[in-house]
């Protein structure tokens, strides 16, 4: 009895479902998110005190110019902005002024960079530079991936 010839490995066909999933994922990752506006200038006074910044959350748009006047109302504080590498120190009764262009979108925490007491590591504020693409894309990607896994499970009991 002759042996059967080995069956060559076949590529899995690209089904309509897979193609749609691929398009969705590419779309989620690459489609531009609207929200661009003419750049504006924001003059913001940020006061640092144990253990909070006021205001604690700022919202600007990408490309905006942010002029900050930093003050401290009790002890020496610092201001470090994640992602931008901005770091300033301010003493009570004085102020520090600095300007930067919000050229990176997303959420960036600003933190006290001078030890100021027990809760110092958690003295945090937030700068949101819109459109916040990362959070929208990540959320959409999560939703698309979950949907795809559930649909795949519906078709084949081999998840």
């Amino acid at each position: 009895m002759s042996q059967a010839a080995p069956v060559p490995a076949q590529r899995r066909p690209i089904t309509a479902g897979r193609a749609i999933l691929l398009v969705l994922i590419v779309g989620v990752l690459l489609v531009p998110i609207p929200g661009f506006r003419t750049p504006q200038t924001h003059n913001i006074v940020i006061d640092a005190s144990q253990f909070e910044f006021s205001p604690a959350r700022l919202t600007v748009n990408r490309g905006d110019i942010v002029q900050v006047t930093l003050t401290a109302s009790d002890v020496v504080h610092g201001f470090f902005l994640d992602g931008y590498g901005i770091d300033f120190r301010v003493e009570p009764g004085t102020s520090q002024e600095f300007t930067f262009t919000a050229d990176r979108s997303g959420k960036f925490r600003y933190r006290c960079s001078v030890a100021c007491g027990a809760l110092h590591p958690f003295m945090i504020g937030e700068l949101v530079v819109g459109p916040n693409e990362l959070v929208w894309r990540a959320s959409a990607l999560a939703a698309v991936a979950v949907g795809a896994m559930l649909l795949h499970a519906r078709k084949r009991p081999s998840a």
Partner: peptide, 11 residues
């Protein structure tokens, strides 16, 4: 609580 901007909750 720890990384958020809500100082009152931290306190």
């Amino acid at each position: 609580v720890l990384f958020g901007p809500w100082a009152t909750v931290k306190e």
